[in-house]
């Protein structure tokens, strides 16, 4: 447990300046979004419309490898910085690639874990020399809310970086498609497919509001026209929406797929194959079962909430 050594070391060095706070996890806290909305260029690649991918369910799929990452950011202590109490967060993250060796049996083929103590830049400067302390960015000592929001963003960034590290390691060793939870625009690989479950950004609204409406009403096993997304830094990815479950509500069973494949019709049908069986929980309709297995696997590797809390309490 690298992270435990980290907090112990920190605790020893700064014991007289640390005070306890009520345990909470940042992932469960609403914070103002600190992520700048990327300037994304959207371009349609097909005639606007929706297209049928399959008549009925077929179990045929060539997908074997699946990836996801999780993070946990918990308040560890408050640091006395010239009488200001600055929250110090513990970041834990993990990423895994699972291989489906046969239906119902998933085995990890690559994985990685990271831990860090997250502090604002001004504190980071003061604590130079302590391994594992990471700056969350510039913030004012009096702006606690900003410090919290920055920690959340940094935690997510650390997890994404870990995912990229594990992903590249996998791609170096395997010559197969990898289905990753979330977007892949920053991955740069043609062998990675991203499956995005949430639709807070309406990409098609910019180029074709009609098509966006059609997507919301898209029937089962249909996809939208393909479109491309391009960032200002030149990175580019192709995308389409796909309905993998009956649209009981506009978002039910709607996923957005990101890829860099020249042919994506087969990929769409494989993802439909992956729609059975259902994941558990509220996101059952948009989370592929193998991705949920990745999450479940990582939950077994990272300390549970009760254990984490108990261990943090135990550290002086």
């Amino acid at each position: 447990m690298e992270w435990l050594r980290l907090v112990e070391e920190f605790g020893k060095l700064a014991e007289d300046r640390l005070s306890r706070g009520e345990y909470y996890e940042l992932e469960g806290v609403e914070t103002p979004s600190m992520t700048p909305h990327p300037r994304m260029q959207v371009r349609l690649l097909e005639i606007p419309g929706i297209y049928r991918v399959a008549e009925r369910y077929s179990a045929n799929t060539e997908l074997r490898y699946f990836m996801d990452g999780v993070q946990r950011t918990v308040l560890w202590r408050y640091y006395d910085y010239h009488s200001a109490r600055i929250p110090v967060f513990l970041h834990l993250s993990g990423a895994v690639v699972l291989e489906r060796v046969k239906p119902g049996v998933f085995l990890p083929v690559d994985q990685g874990y990271r831990s860090a103590l997250l502090v604002p830049e001004f504190l980071h400067e003061e604590l130079q020399g302590i391994d594992g302390v990471v700056s969350t960015g510039e913030a004012e000592p009096w702006n606690i809310a900003e410090a919290v929001a920055l920690a959340k963003v940094k935690s997510r960034a650390l997890r994404q970086a870990l995912e990229l590290e594990v992903m590249h390691r996998f791609l170096e060793r395997h010559d197969a498609l990898l289905v990753k939870d979330g977007n892949i625009i920053d991955t740069g690989s043609a062998r990675v497919v991203g499956v995005v479950k949430s639709h807070s950004r309406l990409y098609l609204q910019q180029v074709s509001p009609t098509l966006q409406r059609l997507v919301w009403n898209m029937p089962l096993y249909h996809r939208s026209s393909a479109f491309s997304l391009r960032l200002s830094d030149g990175s580019r990815v192709e995308s389409f929406y796909l309905r993998i479950h009956e649209p009981l509500a506009p978002e039910t069973g709607l996923i957005r797929v990101e890829h860099r494949l020249s042919e994506f019709e087969e990929l769409a049908s494989w993802l439909i194959a992956e729609s059975r069986v259902y994941s558990r929980g509220e996101r059952w309709h948009s989370m592929l079962y193998p991705i949920q297995r990745c999450e479940a696997y990582l939950r077994t590797q990272l300390p549970g909430r009760r254990r984490l809390r108990a261990l943090l309490e135990a550290v002086a």
């Binding site: 119902g104 194959a273 992956e274």
Partner: peptide, 19 residues
């Protein structure tokens, strides 16, 4: 939850199987 993804068809074998 088991029957639904199989469309109530015991012979339907999905790509995945619950662990």
């Amino acid at each position: 939850t088991h029957a639904l993804p199989r469309a109530n068809d015991p012979l339907l074998i999905p790509a995945n199987r619950e662990q």
